[in-house]
């Protein structure tokens, strides 16, 4: 367990030192959302209706931005190879790196989301649910994204390829995340959506580190 925290702390420290990564992800998130009122027109009712979807789509794209670098830098400087040789399961290394990724990108997105909801004129009933659904959903996004990030190591055109691999797998999280917020705004029960989002998370929690570790092993061979 100590080593698990150690890897998280190391990744967080590196993110702090580089500093700009989390900030740029949030900036991208904000700018992408701001484009919608400019593109689709500032009519308040229409913005309120699409607000949940717009924020979720922008969060999806933003959390994908930093994924490419999840294993890339460690792969290039050789530390990934050392981590894989350590007497410690590679799956746990992946899980620790996913936690660090979520802390540096998922968490800032959740913090920024209510502000954007205000800009898009979302009804206040949706705010808490939006944050809660994003919290549960972005965990799954980081886990699924790790598989893609591991698969593209050493390939040509990594970033574009990553979006092609990962976005289709993000769709279920998007559907139920948006549906939970819309249900909350409309005054409907939203337990089912949260149970499904939780189910995605619980399924991704063991499967994604396993698949990512398999992908990393074949990348390091």
């Amino acid at each position: 367990m100590g080593r698990f925290w150690h890897i998280i702390r190391r990744d967080l420290q590196m993110a702090m030192k580089q500093g700009m990564d989390s900030f740029m992800v949030v900036m991208f998130f904000v700018i992408a959302v701001v484009l919608f009122p400019l593109g689709a027109g500032p009519e308040a009712n229409m913005l309120a209706r699409i607000s949940a979807g717009v924020i979720w789509v922008a969060a999806l794209l933003a959390s994908m931005l930093s994924l490419e670098r999840l294993f890339q830098t460690d792969y290039e400087d050789g530390s990934l190879e050392l981590l894989s040789l350590a007497p410690y399961p590679l799956e746990a290394v992946v899980l620790a790196k996913v936690c660090a990724h979520w802390l540096t990108t998922g968490l800032p997105l959740i913090a920024a989301a209510p502000l954007l909801a205000v800009l898009l004129n979302m009804q206040t009933e949706g705010f808490v649910i939006l944050a809660a659904a994003l919290a549960l959903g972005t965990l799954s996004l980081s886990l699924i994204g790790a598989v893609g990030a591991a698969l593209i190591l050493g390939s040509r055109r990594g970033g574009v390829l990553l979006s092609l691999l990962i976005l289709p797998l993000y769709i279920p999280v998007l559907i139920f995340g948006v549906s939970a917020v819309d249900a909350a705004i409309g005054g409907f029960p939203m337990k089912a959506q949260f149970l499904i989002l939780g189910g995605f998370f619980l399924a991704a929690l063991p499967l994604c580190p396993w698949a990512s570790a398999a992908a990393l092993r074949q990348a390091l061979e």
């Binding site: 691999l165 797998l169 499967l207 698949a211 074949q218």
Partner: peptide, 12 residues
Amino acid sequence: RGARAAAILALV
């Protein structure tokens, strides 16, 4: 490499 990475993706 491509074959093995793609095989993992197919299973996922």
